[in-house]
Write a protein that binds this DNA or RNA. Structure first.
Length: 270
DNA sequence: CAGATATGACAAC
DNA sequence: TTGTCCTATCTGG
């Protein structure tokens, strides 16, 4: 679930449900109990997504910082509260709605200085209107590291995760392993624009779709893809399957402990 | 029912 | 590069 588009949707959703109201917070699991007490009774003033980080800003200069990591998940609904199931780190409610958080890698209270520090260590977020691609290119263009690793580095680009990165590289015709140094300024601007488009679409739809119209199932006479993240993609988790464009078999590799995927002929080496 | 796996990030060698 | 953390879900036996 949690790439940047998910976090941006959550920021909007949480403000809709809880903005301007005082919240009651607890931690059925017990790992956020004392902090829950500090939040209870405060009004949610605004929410914000910075890359994959979610911030709730509460009255009195106190903010809730959440990072979902690999497994984190939110659920919400209308009151009354359902009986707690599983490990609920944080539960938040007002008169009308409830919110549950499970499995985050970060769930903590922070002050303004800490939110500033967080933002300072993040790179450009393709989902933020004010983001510019130049600083990222300054780092990519002088690095020997694989391009996929550079794009996943949140201090270079904030918010893109494995699916967006792997799919964007497919669409650019570049292997995940090409060194950053080998990417031209023009190629980089194309990748950046594509990330902005794909991620903005995902914010609208709530799923990651990267397949161009001419390669969609309807156009290609193939069955639509049904799986966990739900979108139509070219290569992510499609190792051994046929490339939608050329019919060749998709490859899988490993990069810093994560799976990478590419089409050997659509993304030629070097 | 055990084991593997997951869209992430970090510390420690 | 390896290990660790967090939780749910899917796989195979």
């Amino acid at each position: 679930m949690p790439e940047g588009h998910t976090i941006h949707r959550l920021a909007t959703r949480h403000l809709e449900l809880f903005g301007g109201t005082k919240v009651t917070v607890d931690s059925p699991q017990g790992r956020f109990t004392s902090d829950a007490g500090l939040l209870t009774g405060r009004a949610l003033e605004s929410t914000e997504a910075c890359g994959k980080h979610l911030l709730h800003h509460y009255a009195g200069g106190l903010s809730l910082h959440i990072h979902l990591g690999l497994y984190g998940k939110f659920a919400d609904g209308r009151m009354p509260l359902p009986p707690p199931v599983g490990q609920i780190r944080l539960r938040l409610r007002n008169r009308r709605s409830w919110l549950e958080l499970r499995g985050p890698s970060a769930c903590e209270l922070v002050d303004e200085g800490q939110t500033d520090a967080l933002k300072a260590r993040l790179g450009a977020d393709p989902l933020r209107a004010d983001a510019l691609p130049d600083e990222a290119f300054a780092r990519i263009g002088k690095s020997d590291k694989p391009l996929a690793a550079l794009l996943l580095d949140q201090s270079i680009i904030a918010g893109a995760g494995l699916i967006f990165v792997i799919e964007t590289l497919y669409r650019a015709g570049l292997r995940p392993t090409v060194p950053g140094r080998s990417v031209s300024k023009e190629a980089w601007l194309g990748i950046w624009a594509d990330l902005c488009d794909l991620m903005a679409l995902a914010v609208k739809t709530g799923r990651i779709d990267t397949v161009r119209d001419k390669h969609l199932p309807e156009a290609m006479g193939r069955p639509p893809r049904v799986d966990q993240h739900g979108g139509e993609v070219y290569v992510y988790r499609r190792a051994g399957m046929a490339c939608h464009a050329c019919g060749g078999l998709i490859s899988r590799g490993e990069l810093a402990g994560r799976n990478t995927y590419w089409c050997p002929s659509c993304q030629p080496p070097g």
